[in-house]
Nucleic acid binder design. Structure first.
Lengths: 225, 225
DNA sequence: TTGTCAATTGTCAGTGGCTGTCACTAACCT
DNA sequence: AGGTTAGTGACAGCCACTGACAATTGACAA
């Protein structure tokens, strides 16, 4: 089970180079923006050739998502650890909250958490990065759907509910992230509160009539009711 | 209100050049794929300089989404035309269905519908295009949320329900599109059916217990219920 | 220790998307 | 007709990214 028997010098060196590239990239991105940072600048700070950078990362973007990658698999693990009696959406919600609490350490091993939060904010505000982020998010939804289907003992392709449930959940999670990025408070606590409050609104938003009181409000100024 | 008083020779020429570039691009994309098509190839078929292409489109991608742009604003119009007594999610659903019916003509003015469907399929299957598509989709959701809030007479930023409702709806619409792209039948009819069936599952997916029968299934193997 | 093999890296040359600049031409306006 | 403006082409250049080949270095055995 232990995935670390003994890395070996070569492996360790590789890991160090990779981490250094990620750190260099994220710092430069945070300092001057994603587009205004060239790959040459990134590699210069680590003192490797540009070609080496592209051997570690398929593109400049991949370096920007290196830490995100970690948090995503961490979240998937959190979902897997949810007790099976929890309802699907409940399990997803609790998994998110739980993973916020424990992801910190893993991140710090590569970059300061604050830098990661700034990167996340940068992703939300940089069109090119946001686009890639959303594509990755869809990939995650597919994996989640399979997990949920497995949990509930149904077939992902035969029963639409796993994918629909995850789509609903994912839609709201994205909304929370978007609003978080548009706000002022870039703390984890703010993210957590926003997420919770939006998830709470899933039920109310589905209710047919949003106006429980003052029906006068709906006097139609149109001709055909 | 009429936005077409008299185009003028200059305007007409510009429109023709733009349409020709879109058609050329979409045909080449469909024939050899997005990445394998160079801008030089696109402009050569229309006999303009590469520089001109980039004066019409911010990038190669923008040409790929030219027709999508039309369908999106068409859909927004359909939402605006929904009678105010329909519940938000009901109005959205009916607007989608209605816009499928009437979008055809507008598309044909630029490219054959079949080419548009192939392009849509290409977008779903090309990572770079899919990413951009998803970003555009989020932009659309924001506009939708404002529309819904206006319809219901609430404040988009004070009341979370418009954005949540749209997020739920958008999530399911994306799921339908994704599954459509993964399937075999690339017809509008197939898309319509898929959409309807997934929207029907929104309620069921939110139900706490997916297993209506055999409660034996849920005997908890854990200690803390 | 040393020689061999394979993985990692650097160098170089090139492609393709995209931008700035500038001069030229064609459409518009009076 | 003549001046103004918009659209265009040609050219130079930046930057992300790739293929090919040579140089280096860790891994491992003789």
């Amino acid at each position: 089970m232990d995935t670390a028997p003994r890395p070996g010098l070569r492996e360790r060196k590789k890991q160090r180079t990779r981490d250094a590239l990620v750190r260099s990239a994220l710092e430069l991105f945070a300092a001057q923006g994603y587009e205004r940072t060239t790959v040459d600048e990134i590699v210069e700070a680590v003192d490797v050739s540009q070609r080496t950078f592209f051997r570690y990362f398929a593109g400049k973007e991949e370096a920007a998502f290196a830490v995100q990658e970690m948090t995503e698999s961490h979240f998937l693990d959190a979902v897997r650890q949810r007790p099976p009696h929890e309802a699907p959406l409940d399990a997803l919600r609790r998994a998110v909250m739980a993973s916020w609490d424990t992801i910190g350490e893993a991140i710090e091993a590569v970059v300061p958490i604050e830098l990661h939060m700034r990167t996340y904010q940068l992703i939300e505000s940089t069109p090119a990065l946001l686009a890639t982020h959303l594509r990755r998010h869809e990939g995650l939804e597919e994996q989640l759907a399979r997990l949920i289907a497995q949990r509930e003992g149904v077939d992902v392709d035969a029963d639409p509910r796993p994918r629909v449930a995850v789509a609903l959940f994912g839609g709201v999670m994205r909304l929370a992230a978007r609003r978080w990025g548009a706000g002022e408070d870039f703390s984890v606590a703010a993210m957590r509160e926003l997420t919770a409050s939006y998830l709470d609104q899933m039920g109310p938003a589905l209710i047919e009539n949003w106006h429980t009181r003052d029906k006068e409000d709906r006097e139609d100024t149109r001709d055909t009711p």
